[in-house]
C-alpha cells in the first residue's frame, strides 16, 4: 500500500502509473484473505456438482439396465416385475444374434489385425531409423484427428473410384484404419520403455531377429499388446458412424442393428441389448487388466 500513497504524493507520476500501482497493490492485498475462504462451502459445492455430473452421466445407463429386467413392455417406473423375457426375446431374434456374431467376428479380427500391424509399425518407428519416419508416424496417428464422417465418406469414395464393391473385408479394413492409431500409441509408449539392451543380449546369445522378437520383445510388450487389442475391439464393437458408411447391404453390426430398430419403435429388447453391450465392454477391460497384471508378474500366482 505504500506504493499507492507514494505515487499519490508525487505530482509527476502519471495517472496511469498510479492506477496500475493501486490495482497491483489492491490485488496483492485482496488475494491473501482469499485463501482463508471457509473451505466447507466451496468444497461441498464442488462435491455437489460432481455428483450431479455423475448422475447425469450414469442415470440413463442405469435406466437402460433396469428397464431391461422389467417384465412390462412399457418403460415406466415403478417396475412391474423382474424378468429375463427381453433377454430371451433377444436370443430368439435372428437379426440381433446375427448382428452380434458379425460384431464379435469383426471386433476380434480388427483387434488381431490392428495389433499385428501396430506392433510392426511401432517396432519400425522406435527401433529403426529411416527417411520419412516422422511423416509416416504422423500418418499413422491422423485417423484419430480426422472426423469419422469424413473418414467414412473418404474411404467410400476412394473405393467407388477404384470400383471395388462394399464387402465385409472392406468394413474390416475400415475398422483396422480407425483403431490402428490407438494401438500404435499404446504399443509405442511401451516399446520406448523397453531398453534395447534386452534384445541385444538375446542376439548375443544366438537368437536371430525373429527369435529375439518372439522370446524377448513380444513377452515384454504383452501388457501393451493386450491393451491395444482391447482398445481395438471395443472401438470396433461400438462404432456406428463409419460402419454405417462402410457396411454392405445385408450386414448389420450390433450398433447399426440398434440404430435400425430404433427407427421403427423403442422395443425393450433394445434395453436388453444395451445391457449386454455394457456388460461386455466393461468386463472385457477388467479381464484384460487382470490378465495383463498376471503376465507382468511373469505368469505366476
Amino acid at each position: 500500500m505504500t506504493t499507492t500513497t507514494q505515487s499519490r504524493a508525487t505530482p509527476v507520476a502519471s495517472e496511469a502509473a498510479e492506477r496500475a500501482a493501486a490495482a497491483g497493490g489492491g490485488v496483492a492485498t485482496r488475494r491473501r484473505p482469499g485463501v482463508r475462504i471457509p473451505r466447507p462451502s466451496g468444497w461441498s459445492l464442488i462435491r455437489l456438482a460432481s455428483i450431479l455430473v455423475y448422475v447425469f452421466m450414469f442415470a440413463p445407463i442405469a435406466v437402460v439396465v433396469l428397464l431391461s429386467f422389467n417384465s412390462s413392455r412399457f418403460g415406466t417406473f415403478p417396475l412391474e416385475g423382474f424378468s429375463f423375457r427381453w433377454f430371451e426375446a433377444l436370443w430368439a431374434n435372428d437379426a440381433i444374434v446375427s448382428a452380434f456374431q458379425t460384431s464379435l467376428v469383426l471386433g476380434f479380427l480388427t483387434a488381431i489385425i490392428s495389433t499385428s500391424i501396430g506392433i510392426a509399425a511401432s517396432l519400425a518407428m522406435v527401433r529403426y531409423d529411416f527417411p520419412g519416419k516422422g511423416l509416416i508416424n504422423t500418418a499413422l496417428i491422423t485417423p484419430i484427428l480426422v472426423p469419422e464422417v469424413v473418414l467414412g465418406v473418404a474411404l467410400l469414395l476412394f473405393l467407388r473410384w477404384l470400383s471395388i464393391p462394399k464387402s465385409f473385408l472392406l468394413l474390416l479394413m475400415g475398422h483396422v484404419l480407425i483403431t490402428l492409431p490407438f494401438v500404435v500409441l499404446v504399443v509405442q509408449a511401451r516399446l520406448t520403455a523397453i531398453k534395447p539392451v534386452y534384445e541385444e543380449a538375446a542376439k548375443s546369445l544366438g537368437a536371430n531377429a525373429w527369435e529375439t522378437f518372439f522370446r524377448v520383445t513380444l513377452p515384454l510388450l504383452m501388457p501393451a499388446v493386450f491393451a491395444g487389442m482391447l482398445f481395438a475391439f471395443t472401438i470396433s464393437f461400438d462404432d456406428v458412424t463409419a460402419t454405417l458408411f462402410w457396411k454392405s447391404g445385408g450386414t448389420e453390426t450390433v450398433p447399426t442393428q440398434i440404430f435400425a430398430m430404433l427407427r421403427n419403435s423403442i422395443s425393450p429388447e433394445i434395453n436388453a441389448l444395451g445391457t449386454v453391450m455394457i456388460v461386455l465392454t466393461v468386463s472385457l477391460p477388467l479381464i484384460a487388466g487382470g490378465l495383463a497384471r498376471w503376465f507382468a508378474r511373469g505368469g505366476r500366482g
Binding site: 541385444e200 543380449a201 538375446a202 542376439k203 548375443s204 527369435e211
Partner: peptide, 30 residues
C-alpha cells in the same frame, strides 16, 4: 547372433519375464 560371443552388459539385462534357469539356458536353445 552368429559370432558366438558372451556379452555382459552394464545393467545385466537379465530377461525379467524368465526364471533364472531360463535366463541362463537362453543361449543353449541355439
Amino acid at each position: 547372433h552368429k559370432r558366438n560371443l558372451g556379452v555382459v552388459f552394464q545393467n545385466y539385462a537379465l530377461f525379467p519375464h524368465m526364471s533364472i534357469a531360463d535366463n541362463v539356458a537362453f543361449g543353449l536353445k541355439y
